[in-house]
Amino acid sequence: MLLPYFEWCENSALGATIRDSLWLFPVIESFHLVAMAVLGGTVLLVDMRLLGLGLSRRSVATLARDVQPFFVAAVAVMLVSGLLLFSSEAVKCYYSAAFWVKMTFLAAAITFTYSARRRLVGADGECRDSLYGRFVGLTSLLLWFGVGAGGRWIGFS
C-alpha cells in the first residue's frame, strides 16, 4: 500500500544525492546520533525526576520547562536527519521490520510526550513521587528506548 510512496522517496533527487555521495550518509547519521544523545539526556532528566531519581529536589515543571527547548531542537534535528537518511534507502526500510517497529514506537512516544506526560509535567502540582508520576516516567523511558533500539536494529536484521 505504502510501497509506491517509499519508492518515490528513494527515487527523489534528495535520496539519489545522498545515495550517490560517499560521505553524506555517514555524516547525516552522525548528526542523527548526536541529536539522539541530547534527546536522550533531556528525556532522561525529566523521567528520572518522575521516578524520584536524579535532580529530585527540583520541581518536575521547572526541569521540564528548562530542558524543553533542547528537547524540541533535538527532535527537530532527528526528524530532519532521519528523513534524509530514510529518503536514501526508503525501499530497504519498507522491508525492514526494525524500521516499522521504530516508527510505531516513535509515533507512540511523541503522542505520549505531548499528551499524558505533558499534562503531568506541565501542572506544577504535587505529582512528586506519586504512583502515576512513576508510571508516566517509566512509560516514556520505555517508549523512547523502543525508538532507539528499533533504530539501531534497522542496520542489523
Binding site: 546520533l33 536522550g40 532522561l44
Partner: peptide
C-alpha cells in the same frame, strides 16, 4: 553489545551535554 554501546550514549553523553 553494539546496541547497548550506542544507546548508553543517551545516559552518558546526554547528561554530559546538559
Amino acid at each position: 553489545i553494539e546496541s547497548a554501546h550506542v544507546l548508553s550514549l543517551c545516559v552518558f553523553v546526554g547528561i554530559a551535554v546538559l
